[in-house]
Design a protein around this nucleic acid. Structure first.
Lengths: 227, 227
DNA sequence: GCAGACTGTACATTTTTTGTAAATTTGTTG
DNA sequence: CAACAAATTTACAAAAAATGTACAGTCTGC
């Protein structure tokens, strides 16, 4: 699940943001002033930064510029007060990717957060398509074919396969699968992962009992091999 | 290298855009008002037009309509101010290919410019018209027919269908639909998207309960398939 | 105030996900 | 190489989640 860093000096707002973000399932890091925020960014590499324009000491403006100057590409969502400066200067010069003016509606903010995160996830995409054996998978269309024939796959199955494929050749542990596919919040206790693996094999392997591509590594986890 | 025409009355923004575009290697033409822009388009046939929605005398909207009315296919990227956000749908309806709200981040804008140029270079334009099953839709005229008979469709329904069609084959999530069709400001919490999908199916699908073109991808979103 | 469009809600229905237990496979050790 | 323990697979039922849909309330433009 994505990691979000919030840098905001107003405790009430910070708290509200953090709560809401956690509720939506994000991992949240917080800082009340620029310096700490800067260090957190360095240390934790969040996927998104929410940054107040007005901060004590180092302003959000400076921080943003500093980060961009260092080549940090992490999307930044700026919080600005309406009176705070001509909007367009902010947007154009700073390198923020989006901004919201206070007071903001939390729903709007969350929508923008999702949109920004979606943008990075979709651009830094692994190949949307994949072939192995007599199988073709298209992750963007959510379609899989086996010997040209359509195979229905579920959301979790796609997500599982995607992770395995992203790390093709490497072993992925059940724990890693649980973290990535299921997220931290819900944590199925049982052999759920195994079940989904079984599902995948049943749908994609020529002989599910003797899998070629989705391999078991006994005592460790699973591994995808393309050929 | 591609030629880009920028039509924007604010000198600071125009300058910033031009600099950035040149830096990225585009040939840049500029105009501060619609009439000049119109002439430049005629004379120079740029590959892309970046157009401010609010212009003195002839608005960007008018210019856009005028160009499209004359059959000009050049992709248009519309710049809109935040407060005009409700116009976004209008802008797209009138034939703009994409839009960015001010203040925008230069990086985002550049990304969209590249995307638009890539789109023309790779595939043909989105047709203003579309046929599937026994349905014909004309996005420019806001008309749909089913088995030759006129079907009334609402604004949101058109916008929804348009997004699905623009990404035919791919899955579009509810969140993306909300962002694109509804915008960030108003953000219905509920099953609004589903309802509109239901509406579309009722009007366009032969058997709405067993949709062929507007498909559900469980746990993910919706997907349009032409055949 | 009316008509049409949009949004929210409730509930039925469908699909997916999860847990369990028995069967099978794998790895290890004597 | 047999025997045993540990790990994994499989099938299936139960639970949970997502979706479809009808309808009612709300909003908007005329």
């Amino acid at each position: 699940m994505s990691k979000v860093l919030v840098i905001e000096d107003d405790a009430a707002i910070l708290r509200g943001l953090a709560d809401n973000l956690k509720f939506e399932g994000y991992e949240v890091l917080t800082a009340v002033e620029g310096e700490t925020g800067y260090k957190l960014q360095k240390a934790q590499k969040p996927d998104l930064i929410i940054l107040d324009l007005m901060l004590p000491r180092m302003s959000g403006l400076e921080l943003c510029q500093k980060l961009r100057g260092e080549g940090v590409q992490t999307p930044i969502l700026m919080l600005t007060a309406r009176s705070e400066e001509s909007d367009r200067v902010i947007g154009l010069d700073l390198g923020a990717d989006d901004y919201v003016t206070k007071p903001f509606s939390i729903r709007e903010l969350m929508a923008r957060v999702r949109a920004l995160l979606r943008r990075i996830h979709s651009t830094a995409e692994l190949p949307g398509q994949l072939r192995f054996g007599d199988v073709e998978v298209d992750f963007r269309r959510y379609i899989a074919r086996r010997c040209g024939k359509l195979v229905e796959m579920t959301r979790k199955e796609f997500a599982t396969l995607r992770l395995l494929v992203a790390r093709a050749g490497e072993v992925v542990t059940r724990d890693e699968l649980l973290n990535e596919v299921w997220g931290f919040e819900s944590y199925p206790i049982s052999r759920t992962v195994d079940n989904h693996i079984a599902g995948l094999r049943a749908k994609l392997e020529r002989d599910p009992a003797r899998p070629v591509h989705i391999r078991t590594v006994h005592g460790v986890g699973y591994k995808f091999v393309q050929s």
